[in-house]
Design a binder for these strands. Structure first.
Length: 672
DNA sequence: GCAGCGAAAATATCT
DNA sequence: TTTTCGCTGC
């Protein structure tokens, strides 16, 4: 039985009652967005046009107008972005803004599904699996189906997962995805369908969900259950979605569903900055948005407040190279600056040394390390630079690249936590059982069959499956799990016990165990920050810790660190001085993208995003010769840079002098 | 059924 | 360079 409650709308706020002087702080278009009240709006905001600022002020304005903060939903691309916006709103207004609901789509969906788990036949404590786990499941399904030993080539697990993920995120038929992206595997379509079904069935059976399931199942829940949809959407009087150009089909549908009661929805984005097509994002979403909502208002933010005209000129010229054109020209009233620099180094290492020196020189000029960033296409592109920075004692943080929680030893420890939270999590059981000598896939499988039916799944030593040879080890595991399950321990106490138990296995398995044990000690410390085991698992799955964050945390510099970041992770951020390194053809654009216009355009937009992060000065650097991870060499600068007309960039020539002890004086690179 | 060895293959960006 | 596959001996 449906029940609608009619509530009176808050009376429209009187402008003179606002404490914030909006009209003095924002331009005309920004004000339009901030004071936009009811209905649907699309804010098209070019890079650096104050998009975040506008969202922050709109949140504050709504709260000031008497809208209950918790009825505002702010969906962003990273959790970091949501937290930052909410804290900025809190700063300009007051603590009420802290109650605004914010986070990523995945985070929102995770909360929703945990709350309504019973509606979709899942236990409230289902586990979210990351990509590595998902690949393990696919591999398992693939071998079980006997597909690995066909004489014909069958797609590997990475390809299979990417196909499955596309099907879900783009909401397309499997045939369409395979035909479109992997026509060479069309002949295997039946088997791929089997893998798809097997993968789905496995997750249902073991009560785990992958990232895509979070979105897909949320849409299913809201679409199939009218009562839930009404109840949920009623809580969100105002829905705002940031970075809308990087939403996929499921997220666009979710946006509609979540705003379907109050119909107040604002999407903000920039089609020129769409860089997540590989993940199913569809920049057409933003173009189609106005047609999805009745009387949608369109607001354009065009004046750039971030970068100097010289940097914007490079950005505009880059965008002009796209196959599919944008009608976009950024302009800025900012003061003139030097032309962006184009720096050719002889080698990878010379590039690193140039960057290190340039950074040190800027620091001498009182520019904080934190106001500089080095950006790159791939996580590994900065490895050599990281060594150089360490050598010179320059503190840095790195965003993107390897995640701490992806390291095998951390996953091992987390698997123990997972079986405590969700005893039906086969994947985690497999992982911890196979640590024990003598237990392989087969025995683990049999043990799990027993666990599934057992009255106490942790009392493994009661199972008749266990053979004598490893009984002692099983007893140890069993004792640990029972103890942790029976006692009300703090999260870090649980993790600490697991680490103690795991130490032996870690030492046996890894030559570099001292480093890994140190990591685990750090992890015990981090775990103290979580309120419960299941919260910890959820948070770590959706917001994994960066691998280098672990090292830097211990160093405790009083100086704010330099930022190293993949371009993808730099989205939405800005710095005074930006270095874009490894600008090589084959790196950016990636050599796997050059055959395809769509892919190539996305690489170009990536370069555009990187370029528009810079406020004051921009440097493109590349080595004359660079070795790829195996085999071939990169020898040409990025075509995007090569194609720029003369006079946009200033070429720098590096002349290296013999190393001298006084770096600041004589050993510098000369510029011309 | 398990573990270890050697040969062969191999895209990356993120929630 | 690292991961994956198949083979062999226990």
């Amino acid at each position: 039985m449906k029940k609608f409650v009619l509530k009176k709308e808050e009376s429209a706020p009187k402008p003179e009652n606002y404490t914030i002087k909006y009209s003095e702080l924002l331009n005309k278009q920004q004000l339009d967005a901030v004071f936009f009240d009811r209905g649907a709006a699309l804010v098209v905001a070019g890079a650096g046009t104050g998009k975040t600022r506008t969202l922050v002020y709109r949140v504050a304005r709504l709260v000031e107008a008497g809208v209950h903060p918790s009825s505002i939903l702010l969906l962003t691309f990273t959790r970091r972005a949501a937290q930052e916006m909410i804290s900025r709103a809190t700063n300009i207004l007051d603590d009420r803004c802290k109650h605004v609901k914010g986070g990523t789509f995945h985070y929102y969906c995770s909360q929703l599904l945990h709350q309504y788990a019973s509606e979709i036949g899942f236990p409230a404590d289902f586990t979210i699996i990351d990509t590595a786990d998902a690949l393990d499941v696919i591999q398992h399904v693939r071998t079980q189906l006997g597909l690995h030993k066909k004489n014909k080539r069958f797609p590997n697990k990475n390809t299979l997962l990417s196909i499955i993920s596309s099907v879900k995120n783009k909401h397309l038929d499997l045939r369409v995805v395979v035909g479109d992206q992997y026509p060479q595997f069309m002949e295997n379509i039946e088997q791929i369908q089997q893998v798809y079904d097997g993968y789905q069935a496995y997750k249902e059976r073991n009560f785990v969900m992958d990232f895509d399931d979070l979105l897909e199942k949320s849409v299913e829940l809201l679409q199939s259950n009218e009562a839930v949809r009404t109840k949920v959407a009623a809580q969100h009087r105002f829905v705002m979605v940031d970075e809308y150009q990087d939403t996929n089909k499921l997220q666009a549908t979710l946006t509609q569903l979540l705003s379907s009661v109050h119909n107040n929805v604002m999407a903000v984005g920039d089609d020129a900055q769409s860089i997540y097509a590989f993940r199913g994002a569809d920049h057409r979403n933003i173009l189609e948005f106005p047609s999805l909502y009745e009387n949608c208002t369109l607001i354009k933010l065009e004046e750039n407040y971030r970068s100097t005209p010289q940097i914007l000129c490079a950005a505009n010229e880059l965008l002009g190279q796209a196959y599919h054109k944008f009608d976009k020209q950024l302009f800025s009233e900012k003061e003139e600056s030097d032309l962006p620099a184009l720096v050719k180094a002889a080698s990878d290492n010379e590039q690193s040394r140039f960057l290190t020196q340039a950074i040190l020189q800027l620091r001498e000029q009182e520019i904080a390390l934190n106001d500089m960033a080095v950006l790159f296409r791939n996580g590994r592109d900065s490895f050599d630079l990281e060594i150089e920075l360490n050598r010179k004692n320059i503190p840095f943080v790195k965003f993107g690249g390897l995640k701490f929680t992806e390291a095998a030893h951390v996953k091992d420890v987390l698997a123990h936590v997972r079986v405590l939270v969700n005893p039906m999590d086969t994947l985690a059981w497999n992982r911890i059982l196979m640590l024990i000598d003598g237990i392989g896939p087969k025995t683990a499988q049999e043990l799990f069959e027993w666990i599934r039916l057992a009255s106490n799944p942790y009392a493994l030593d009661a199972s008749e499956v266990v053979s004598k040879s490893y009984m002692k080890q099983i007893k140890g595991l069993s004792k640990l799990l029972i103890k942790l399950n029976d006692n009300e321990l703090m999260v870090n106490e649980v993790v600490s016990e697991i680490v103690d138990y795991y130490k032996n296995y870690c030492e046996k398995r890894y030559d570099d165990y001292p480093k890994r044990l140190k990591d685990l000690e750090t992890f015990v410390g981090i775990s103290a920050g979580f309120s419960s085991l299941s919260n910890m698992l959820r948070d770590l799955a959706l917001d994994p810790i960066n691998a280098t964050a672990i090292d830097t945390e211990q160093q405790q510099h009083d100086e704010l660190p330099l930022v190293l970041s993949t371009i993808h992770s730099a989205k939405g951020l800005e710095w005074e001085h930006v270095f874009i390194m490894q600008c090589l053809d084959g790196v950016i654009p990636s050599s796997y993208s050059v055959e395809d216009e769509e892919l190539l355009d996305e690489e170009l937009r990536l370069m555009y995003v990187a370029t528009t992060r810079a406020k004051q000065m921009l440097y493109y650097t590349f080595p004359a010769i660079a070795q790829s991870s195996y085999g071939d060499y990169f020898t040409k600068p990025s075509r995007f840079i090569e194609n720029l007309p003369d006079g946009i960039l200033e070429p720098w020539i590096l002349t290296e002098e013999p190393e001298t002890p006084m770096l600041d004086e004589a050993g510098n690179y000369l510029t011309e």
